[in-house]
Simulated assay, not measured.
Amino acid sequence: MPHIPHGPKIKQSRPLNTGSTWQRLLLALGLALGCIAGAMAAAADLPKIIYVRPVPNNDDVLLAQGTSGVNNAAKLYRMEAVTLESQATRAGRQQQLDNAIKQGARIVVVMGIEFKDILDGVARQAPQTRFLILEHCIDNAATNVTCITFRENEASYLAGMQAALASSGGKIGMIGASNTALRKKNSAAFANGARAAKAGIAVHETLWLEGPQPFNDPPRAETLTKTMLGDGVDVIWAAAAGSNSGVFKALTPQTRAKAIGSGSNQCVQAPGRVLDNVEVHADTAITLAVGLLVNGSTAPRFDFGLKEGAVTLTALGLDAAYSECDILHLRPVLLKVREANNAIISGKLKIE
């Protein structure tokens, strides 16, 4: 038989050193846990800004802006942001304010008239904490309470101009939520803007929803809209937030009348029926206010408007082209409103 040569001897490899492998894994895990612990410790060392909602999480756009506002402020000023949801009772809100203080909040932000009667007492018991309340100022408040107000009348004036210039029938109107001093001021600014833009424009008496849920009563808003349409109004400023869907529903069967929404971009809710919107940016206001507090301000009130970007019209924003607002098809009107906006910001046009 022929000789078949043997191949080279294969040297047996040494068994894996499982001990060292596990040691490396344990080391890597330890490092990872150390990083996580370090990050947690760093976060724990950051001052807290806590937003206390007046109700549990829902689809309220303005309340949602409270969360985004404190989150943005936390990123800018190296803070830890927390949102606490209250049960929709006085006791529930009181409890969450107390919880915010127990958690060591440096700044507490609240939004809603529901806090007006309880915030001052809480603030006096926690002088080391700064409190921000939006819109609802407290008379003779504790020195650590700052109220944020909005010059909504500036955007209301622009909405009145827009309504008058877009009206073909010469009659416009406003449907508001509740007949408060602030809303009446906005109603007057709306009428003044309309008359400044078009002499002889007829402004219907403002109709108010009132009732237990003026910001969330679409059926009532629909009824009031039909009343205005019957009176010949063809542009309606729907200034009632969640109730506005009732306005849009009443406008849907016809093509003559239009609406101006409020709060956020509502053009997408009724394409072709909504000219524009008066927007309030609570998130922008909160971020600005926190910056002022961090830099040492002890002012009892901050007032923000068009100049600060806290109120505006949707069509004046950077993403207006994607808004689906009908005013984009009325370029001459939009240009006049933009000129007025710039004049208000520069101080050339005064809005009372």
Score class of each variant (00 low, 15 high):
43 A>C: 05
145 V>N: 05
243 S>N: 08
266 Q>A: 10
327 I>T: 07
200 G>W: 05
10 I>M: 11
128 Q>N: 13
244 N>T: 02
222 E>H: 03
93 R>K: 05
185 K>F: 04
106 R>T: 10
79 M>E: 14
75 K>I: 07
153 N>H: 14
27 L>R: 08
213 Q>F: 09
50 I>N: 00
307 K>T: 05
135 E>H: 08
135 E>V: 14
146 T>V: 11
144 N>R: 01
39 A>C: 04
346 S>E: 12
311 V>A: 04
142 A>R: 01
309 G>M: 07
33 L>A: 14
12 Q>T: 08
125 Q>Y: 04
163 A>G: 05
344 I>D: 03
128 Q>H: 09
117 D>N: 13
109 V>T: 04
276 D>I: 04
154 E>G: 05
246 G>S: 13
297 S>V: 04
221 A>R: 03
349 L>A: 09
262 S>W: 08
37 A>T: 03
198 K>L: 12
28 A>P: 01
205 E>W: 00
184 K>F: 05
209 L>C: 05
19 G>L: 11
307 K>N: 06
324 E>A: 14
302 F>Q: 10
297 S>K: 07
347 G>F: 09
68 S>A: 10
306 L>S: 05
273 R>N: 12
110 V>C: 03
261 G>H: 09
48 K>W: 06
199 A>Y: 06
334 L>M: 11
207 L>T: 05
168 S>Q: 13
34 G>L: 11
155 A>K: 11
147 C>P: 09
